[in-house]
Simulated assay, not measured.
Amino acid sequence: MTTVAVVCTAILGLSALVAVVRIVRGPSMLDRAVATDTFIAMMAAAIGIEAVANDRTVTLPILVALALIGFLGSVAVARFAVRPEEEA
């Protein structure tokens, strides 16, 4: 594994730790949702780094599935976070 991959993995690990802390201690549900979306993006980046470092393409479907889960989760939270105005 190259030095760049090790440094990127260490930075992603620290970022994931911060995201998990925000998921646990987040003051609101929207903060937790953003932290979860960030955590999923970091997982995808870590899998991408692993795929590049080991010269494998088998993990591409996992990356696509993580991207889809992250997108659908964000859309679902955004849809339910916005409260419709009461009609008079």
Rank of each mutant, 00 (worst) to 15 (best):
T9C: 15
R83Y: 03
F71V: 08
G70M: 08
T57W: 15
L30K: 03
E86G: 12
G48L: 06
L17T: 09
V7N: 12
P61H: 02
M29Y: 12
L68T: 11
F71N: 04
A16N: 03
L72R: 03
R83S: 14
A41T: 13
V20M: 14
M42G: 02
L72Q: 04
V75H: 10
L17S: 10
A51W: 10
A51V: 05
V21G: 10
R25D: 02
F71C: 07
V7C: 07
A78M: 11
V75S: 08
A88V: 02
E50H: 07
V21C: 10
P27I: 08
S15I: 09
M1E: 07
A35W: 00
V7H: 06
E85S: 10
L63H: 08
A81L: 05
P84M: 07
A65S: 11
V64P: 07
P61I: 07
T9M: 15
V64K: 07
E50K: 00
P27F: 13
A65F: 12
A10W: 07
V82N: 05
A78Q: 09
L60K: 04
R79C: 01
A44D: 02
G73T: 06
S74I: 00
G73A: 09
A41G: 11
P27S: 09
L60S: 06
V52L: 15
V64N: 05
A53Q: 12
T3F: 13
L12E: 05
L17K: 08
V77D: 01
L30M: 14
A46D: 00
F71Q: 04
A67C: 06
A51N: 06
R56D: 14
V82K: 13
A35Y: 00
I49G: 00
R22I: 03
A78T: 10
T36W: 03
T9V: 00
R22F: 10
A65T: 07
V21Q: 09
V75C: 13
V21A: 15
A35P: 03
G70I: 00
V34K: 05
M29H: 08
